[in-house]
Amino acid sequence: MDHESPMLEDLFGVPWLDFNLSTTLMVFVSSVIVFIICTLGARKLQMKPTGFQNFMEWIVDFVKGIIGDTMGWKTGKVFLPLGLTLLVFVFVSNMLGVIFMGVVGHTLWWKSPTADATVTLSLAGLVVLLSHYYGIKVRGFKAYCKGFISPVPFLLPFKIIEEFTNTLTLGLRLFGNVFAKEILLSLITKMAMIAVPFTTVASIIPMMAWQGFGMFLGAIQAFIFTMLTMVYISHKVSEDH
């Protein structure tokens, strides 16, 4: 039962252009799912919301609350679509691996895309880059640079290191949580396969428990990722930091 990744290395002869095809597939799948869910939710909008629209508006209000807590609604209004997309995308990605794992032959195809450090670190890097971009855009280049040496110039190296640690911790936190969840899920599955009728029955309860916990964890991590994104952006955008 060795699970391997479907690797595709050096596409078009470009040395760094490697693909883990399962990750590529899962990113695509969760993007499509998120797109379908959200477009369905935003269809036939009414003044008196019902059902799905209520749910979507609840999510919007939730992210509004996060932004309002971190940087205030007035400056943070532009980040609402980003926060919403992050939240829903990360949540759906986390859920994909909870429901089932798809193994074809010895190759692991279906998993959470967030169980790959490449994806989480890419998202984290994107978020940090965006925070710099908006820091310059909102406060101007001078104030942005001043942010690195305030309150004392002595802090400059730490501030620069902080940007990298922020990226790493943001990405690796999500990756670590989801990856650990997937490992335990696969271990429980393996345990079920050892002696088929007995261990299968015995592993149902831990499987259910861990899947439940996995959903909880996926939701929490999606929230934390969005929250921290907004915190990092607010550090760059707000005047009082």
Binding site: E4, D18, T23, F89, T118, S186
Partner: peptide
């Protein structure tokens, strides 16, 4: 087994960022 999945793939990075931005 799972560790063999690890490592950073440049293609996936580009793909995930691009697909996220498109999304």
């Amino acid at each position: 087994i799972q560790a063999s999945i690890g490592g950073l793939q440049g293609g996936d990075m580009v793909f995930s960022i691009v697909s996220f931005l498109i999304l």
